[in-house]
Every structure is written in structure tokens, then in C-alpha cells.
Amino acid sequence: MRDLFRKREFNLFIFILFIIFGVSLRTPSFLYINNFVDILNDTAILSMVAIGQLMIIATGGIDLSVGSSLALSGMSVALLNQYHPGIPIFVIILISITIGLLLGSINGLLVSQAKIPPIITTLGTMSIYRGLVFVLCKGTWVSAHEMTEAFRGFPRSSFLGISSLIWVSILIVILFLIFLNLTRTGREIYGVGGNKIASQYVGINLKKIQYIVFTLGGGITGLAGFLWVSRYAAAQSETAIGFEFQTIAACVIGGVSIAGGTGTIIGVVLGSFFMGIVYNALTMINVSPFWQMAIQGFIILFAIIINTFMDKRNQQLMLRKRSFNE
């Protein structure tokens, strides 16, 4: 039981329950099941992309280009849908993922082969991809009436009462839970972030791991691009601007250390859900949306300070345990 309390994810979960409890005292309608489905719908894309971000941060990197590559893949499939409405939806999804994989692998190649630090690489590709969105759409929008019904309807189509948007994100969560926890490559990702030099001595291929995380992260982002554009039924050159910071924030709140080597998918999903719940709660208790950003910033700072304290306490506890055993 004490071990449970020491887990960040559990603490975050308790904290979320507290917020739900507090808000529902003021606004009982917050507790309606429909409201939670709304929150899940709102955070589905964020949590998927944040999982990609988690893998990259776990290796000690960072991806600032997610917002731009999301917009680029989303814009590409939206234009494709506009000019070739006959293409079936699953082909569109595949194309969207492929574009994401491609954009991610460009990042991956620059980081692993050209050895440019991830923050610089993605700072550069962030501008490049964002500019390409503009070149593609020539500054115009693809709006709802230019998309086919199947394209717009996909995230809203429901199966067993749950929208396919949520199903897709659940699928991604399960896939990457297995990948990160049960496969050799998944464990190597954490190894690289924990200690780059030591990991190479035990035979981990650093270049391969870096390439894999950026490419997979890109693939998720590509899929998210399609989901974003179809959910909001609009593609424009400003789509998902600043989204990279939200994904990093979800990771940080979920207990991912920005230095690499730690972080769990459950934490990241809870982190995204936490952000979604806070936004939703603010609207529910009639706080002006202009407060959102300030509160988001405050939460991020609060979360990282708490995380650091817990880390220090855990280390002390570990040391004490060890000395006791000896």
C-alpha cells in the first residue's frame, strides 16, 4: 500500500479524483457520463500524440515538430479528400500515417545519422513542416463542406456506444503499452535515456533506437493529423499551432522526466486526461477561457516541483532501505 502511494501515477489519479469531487460539488452536471465522454473525446488526440512524445523524451530527446507534422499530414489528407472524394477512408488513414512516418523518419535520420541534437532538428523541421502546410494549401482552408461525409463522420461514428476516436486512442495506448513494456526495443528506449554511454556498452544500437522513436512518434502524429482534421472538420495552415507544448506538458504532468529514462504510458494518459478535465471544469464553473493558459502554466510548474520533491524523497527512502538491509 505504501508503495502504491509512492507511485506518481497513483498520486495523479487521486489528484484527478479530488478535482472531480471538488468541481462536482459546485456543478453536479460535471459528473454526467456524457461530460466524461466529451472529455475523453477532447483528450484522445492529445494522449495519442503525447505517447509519441513520451518515447522521444524517454530517450533523452524532445520533439517540437509534432504540431507542424500533425498539421501537414492533416492538410494533405484533407486536400486529397477534397480533390479525390472517391478514395475510401481506410486508404486515407493509411496515407495519413505514412506521411507522419515519413516526416518522423526525416527527424529520426537527422538526429541519428547527422547527429544534430533533437531540440535543434525538430526546431528546424517545425518551421519547415509548418511552411509546407502553407505551400500546400496556399493559405486557404479546407472546410467542412469540402470534405466527404465519410471523412468528417469517422471520429463521430460509434461502436458499442464509444466513438471511434476513443477506440483508436485505446488501440494506440494498448499497442504502445505492449511495445514499451514487453519488447526488447521498448526497454532499450528507456535504457538509452537512462544512460546513453552505458547503454551503448551493453550493446544497444543508439542510432537505431533514436530513428525508431522519431519514426513511430511521427506515425502516431500522422494518424492524429487525420483525426484532428476530421474531428474539427477544418484544415488550415494554423492547425495545431503550439500543440507540441501541450504534448510536452501532458508528459511532464504525467511524471515523465524531461532528462529521459523514465515515464510511463499510464502516467502520460492520466496527464492528458488531467489537462482535459481541468479545461472542462473551468468551463463548467464559468471561468473565462482566458484563464486557461495561465492555469495550464501554473499546473505544469506545480506538477514538476511536486515530481522533483517525490523523486528526492524516493531516493532517500531507497538509500535508507539499502543501508537497513546491509
Binding site: 507544448f245 486557461q292 493558459m293 495561465a294 502554466g297
Partner: peptide
């Protein structure tokens, strides 16, 4: 990252 949101948020 946090203070970026916080300051602009204020």
C-alpha cells in the same frame, strides 16, 4: 515551458 504558459496566460 510552464512559465511560458503562465506568463502569457496572465
Amino acid at each position: 515551458l510552464g512559465s511560458m504558459s503562465l506568463f502569457r496566460g496572465i
